[in-house]
Design a protein around this nucleic acid. Structure first.
Length: 281
DNA sequence: GGCCAGGTCCAAT
DNA sequence: ATTGGACATGGC
């Protein structure tokens, strides 16, 4: 049965395409096919209305975090003039709430990779091991649970490269309920708990806390954020990732993660600043 | 063809 | 605590 949910100020396409989530595809009719855990659904946005089939209203609200009021975050972040261009470029962006294990797996896969390749790797793993899902004419595969993951050798055949060993070992550890505990822990402890997993250090742990557990304070520092944040706030200076995270926490507090995501998307979509060579010419 | 990609791990300062 | 190199693969 189709469900309709009001989602004022939400941009579905932007939120899906902003690099936080890899299990979606745009259909010819303009709707989006989404796989979230064991659920394949179709969703489209018309104005403030979200219409979906294959999913109940509760999961739709949960996944798109529709019950989370972002206005306090946006109000606070907009006071930062240097963040405004990025915020303006990302109106309607929401941080999704992914399945924790899939998010861990996707961001282990993301190490020194890129979005098209991550998307392909994750789809390959699902197609090789996951249960088939169907919705009308739509077909997809669920991503395997930790206990169902392929062995390292199989992951290597899927071109996961050196990430294969991390992922296979992380799956074994995650099979024992570690990820359920994380939900109840305060940020620092939750992060330490995640970092027990091979392939999960500061950056991946922050991605998981932000994109799966809704911790809007988590500030993942990747190469793009490093470059963009330094350019905006500390031109001609170098800084460790640790200090960068401390800076973000102090400047943006509990909303640093939202700032991170708009900076990430904005820096990748905006034209790069002219290089010195071009300026000279 | 070398450099870099939503890094992590390990060893050596 | 910080730093350098190895680690697979692919795109430009």
């Amino acid at each position: 049965m189709p469900v309709s949910v009001r989602a004022p100020g939400f941009d579905l396409a932007l939120s899906l395409a902003s690099g936080q989530f890899f299990r979606w595809s745009r259909q010819e009719d303009g709707s989006f096919a989404v796989v979230r855990g064991p659920v394949l659904f179709r969703v489209r946005q018309t104005g403030d209305l979200l219409r979906a089939e294959g999913v109940d209203e509760a999961l739709l609200r949960e996944f798109f975090a529709l019950d989370q009021d972002l206005r306090p975050a946006l109000r606070a972040l907009r006071r930062d003039e240097r963040l405004r261009p990025a915020l303006d470029a990302c109106r309607g962006l929401r941080i999704l709430r992914q399945d924790p294990w899939e998010c861990v797996a996707a961001f282990i896969t993301s190490i020194a990779s890129n979005i098209p390749r991550i998307t392909r790797n994750v789809a390959d793993i699902a197609a090789a091991t996951g249960r088939p899902l169907q919705l009308g004419g739509l077909k997809a595969y669920a991503f395997p649970r930790p206990g169902e993951m392929p062995e390292e050798a199989a992951l290597r055949e899927m071109k996961l490269g050196f990430r294969a060993a991390y992922l296979a070992r992380a799956a074994r550890l995650a099979a024992s309920g570690l990820l359920e505990d994380v939900a109840h822990l305060p940020y620092d402890e939750a992060k330490r708990a995640l970092m027990v997993l091979p392939g999960v250090a500061e950056k991946v742990a922050d991605c998981v806390l932000l994109f799966a557990y809704g911790r809007l304070n988590a500030f993942p520092v990747d190469t793009w954020i490093r470059k963009t944040t330094l350019r905006l706030f500390f031109p001609r200076r170098r800084m460790s990732d640790r200090r960068l995270r401390a800076f973000a926490a102090e400047r943006w507090g509990g909303y640093a993660g939202y700032a991170q995501q708009v900076l990430y998307h904005w820096s990748r979509s905006a034209p790069a600043p002219a290089s010195p060579a071009l300026v000279r010419a």
